[in-house]
């Protein structure tokens, strides 16, 4: 195999590798941010309930709303990664 053939093969593999990296970065960075956010929400919820247990019912609705809004961030990353994977 001469040098040019190796370069061509590397370019093709490189495109695939780039797609894989895009997908992994999308979901990975998304999960990083959402992990911090979700931890924050549940941590705050525990503190709030520990201070005022009688507010638990009211806080639960807000907690799940915040959880779902934060968790969705992972999926924006995933969709972005999938777009890079499929379209490019």
């Amino acid at each position: 195999m001469n040098f040019a053939a190796i370069l061509v093969a590397a370019a093709e593999d490189g495109a695939d590798a780039g797609k894989a990296v895009a997908l992994a970065l999308g979901i990975g960075l998304g999960a990083l941010g959402a992990g911090v956010g979700i931890g924050n929400i549940f941590g705050s919820m525990i503190q709030a309930v520990a201070r005022q247990p009688e507010l638990r019912g009211e806080l639960q609705g807000i907690q799940w709303l915040g959880f779902a809004l934060t968790e969705a961030v992972v999926f924006y990353g995933l969709i972005g990664g999938l777009l890079a994977f499929v379209l490019v």
């Binding site: 779902a68 968790e71 969705a72 992972v74 999926f75 924006y76 995933l78 969709i79």
Partner: peptide, 13 residues
């Protein structure tokens, strides 16, 4: 976008 993609991506994933 956020309303539709949230549900879609959750179920897809």
């Amino acid at each position: 976008i956020s309303l539709s993609v949230r549900l879609y991506a959750n179920m897809l994933a």
